Deep mutational scan, measured.
Amino acid sequence: MDVFMKGLSKAKEGVVAAAEKTKQGVAEAAGKTKEGVLYVGSKTKEGVVHGVATVAEKTKEQVTNVGGAVVTGVTAVAQKTVEGAGSIAAATGFVKKDQLGKNEEGAPQEGILEDMPVDPDNEAYEMPSEEGYQDYEPEA
């Protein structure tokens, strides 16, 4: 019985440690998101679009440190934060509304985080759909 109880105690310690790591990862992701939003706020009209992409990228980098179902929630929060940063930029006159959601080359930025393969159960990952990809044929 002692062996059984000791095993359960060790398992509990492992769960607590994993929860603490997840909590730490979420806190880091939130900190990076805040950094990115402050970065966007300090940019001029020309830099705002690039700044919004930076927020998304920093958040995406930190999301990889967070495991399990938390990833889905962090990704949703990050996307809403990026959308909010863009709205703030438009409201303050840093950028025109028609410039939001495009990178410096004018290509749409939507789907940055949505296409990231995420499995809350950590069982399997699927690649994003290939609808947006084109076949590449090298020139002879």
Score class of each variant (00 low, 15 high):
V3R: 15
F4V: 07
K6V: 06
K6M: 14
G7A: 12
S9G: 11
K10M: 09
A11L: 11
A11K: 00
K12V: 15
K12A: 07
G14F: 03
G14Y: 09
V15K: 00
A17L: 12
E20V: 10
T22D: 00
T22S: 09
K23L: 09
Q24N: 02
Q24C: 09
G25I: 12
E28G: 11
T33R: 02
T33I: 15
E35I: 06
G36C: 09
G36R: 09
V37E: 00
L38K: 08
V40Q: 01
G41F: 04
S42T: 09
S42C: 11
K43A: 13
T44C: 15
K45E: 01
K45A: 01
E46D: 06
V48N: 01
G51C: 05
V52A: 11
T54D: 01
T54V: 15
T54L: 08
V55H: 01
V55T: 06
E57W: 08
E57S: 03
E57F: 09
E57I: 09
E57D: 10
K58N: 09
K60V: 15
K60N: 06
K60G: 03
E61L: 03
Q62W: 03
V63C: 05
V63T: 09
V66Q: 03
G67T: 11
G67W: 10
G67K: 13
G68P: 10
A69Q: 04
A69R: 15
V71Q: 11
G73F: 15
V74G: 06
A76R: 10
V77C: 05
T81Y: 07
G84L: 10
A85W: 11
A85N: 10
A85R: 08
G86V: 03
G86D: 10
S87G: 03
S87C: 06
S87Q: 07
A90Q: 03
A90K: 02
A90G: 10
A91H: 07
A91W: 09
A91S: 08
T92V: 14
T92G: 07
G93P: 04
F94K: 14
V95D: 07
K96V: 13
K97N: 08
K97E: 08
K97P: 02
Q99R: 06
Q99C: 11
Q99E: 11
L100M: 15
L100P: 03
K102L: 02
K102G: 04
N103G: 10
N103A: 05
E104F: 14
E105N: 09
G106P: 10
G106C: 12
G106D: 01
A107N: 05
P108Q: 09
Q109R: 03
Q109T: 13
Q109S: 12
E110Q: 08
E110T: 03
E110I: 10
G111N: 15
I112M: 07
L113R: 06
D119A: 03
D119K: 03
D121G: 02
D121S: 14
D121V: 11
D121R: 03
N122S: 08
E123Q: 15
E123R: 08
A124G: 09
Y125C: 05
P128V: 04
P128F: 10
P128Y: 03
S129L: 04
S129Q: 06
E130G: 14
E131L: 05
E131M: 01
G132D: 07
Q134D: 01
D135V: 09
D135E: 13
D135P: 06
Y136D: 04
E137W: 03
P138F: 10
E139W: 05
E139G: 04
A140F: 01
A140S: 10
